[in-house]
Simulated assay, not measured.
Amino acid sequence: MSVPTTTMRIDPELKDEANKVLGELGLSLSGAVTIFLKAVVREQGLPIDMSIKPDKTDESNR
């Protein structure tokens, strides 16, 4: 099965740091992106919390 190539623009420093972490987990950047995209499809959205939470000092003022 032939898999098409996808090009992404990623900050080089971020890519290096992520590759270090992923390497320790036994994953490639491509493998990690695949896992993320499968989670997006499964969840029908981002698989992480994307909320804006109020500052704790704001809560104490209420």
Rank of each mutant, 00 (worst) to 15 (best):
P47G: 04
V41L: 11
S30P: 01
R9M: 10
S51F: 00
E24D: 13
N19C: 13
T5G: 07
V40G: 04
G23M: 02
G26E: 06
I48R: 06
A39C: 10
V3I: 15
D16P: 00
I48A: 11
L46A: 07
P4I: 05
G45I: 02
D11C: 14
E17K: 12
I48M: 14
P12V: 01
K53I: 10
V40Q: 01
L27Y: 14
P47R: 00
K15M: 06
L14T: 08
K56R: 12
D58I: 07
D55H: 15
E17P: 02
G31L: 03
V21A: 07
L29G: 09
I48C: 12
T57Y: 05
V41H: 05
P12F: 00
L46T: 10
L14N: 06
F36V: 14
K38F: 04
S51L: 03
L22F: 02
A32P: 03
F36S: 04
E43G: 01
M50T: 15
T5Q: 15
E13M: 11
K53S: 13
F36W: 14
T34W: 01
E59F: 06
N61D: 12
R62G: 09
T34K: 10
I35S: 06
M1A: 13
M1Y: 13
F36M: 12
F36R: 00
N19Q: 14
L46P: 03
R9Q: 14
